[in-house]
């Protein structure tokens, strides 16, 4: 079970809810890109993935201590 968001340019951000444990490292690494609810992280509502800070999202994926985040830039990102 995962929370997945796709951008107009094919960029994809997912949080694997079989792993996520709600620690919030992703929020700190990529401010504004995630919200926490029910001890799980979700891509923030209205997040425009094509325009988002990709370096921050990559940092979030690296920082997750549960390896729950997959970030795949699309287009020429």
């Amino acid at each position: 079970m995962s929370a997945v968001l796709r951008g107009a340019d094919g960029t994809r951000l997912s949080v694997d809810h079989g792993l996520c444990s709600g620690t919030g490292h992703c929020q700190e690494a990529a401010p504004g890109a995630f919200r926490l609810a029910d001890r799980r992280a979700w891509p923030a509502e209205g997040l425009d993935l094509a325009a988002a800070d990709h370096a921050g999202l990559r940092r979030a994926a690296d920082a997750c201590p549960w390896y729950a985040i997959t970030f795949t830039p699309g287009g020429n990102g």
Binding site: M1, H17, G18, L19, C20, S21, R39, W66
Partner: peptide, 8 residues
């Protein structure tokens, strides 16, 4: 991580 995840 899987065995100790919140959902498990």
């Amino acid at each position: 991580v899987k065995a100790l995840s919140a959902s498990r």
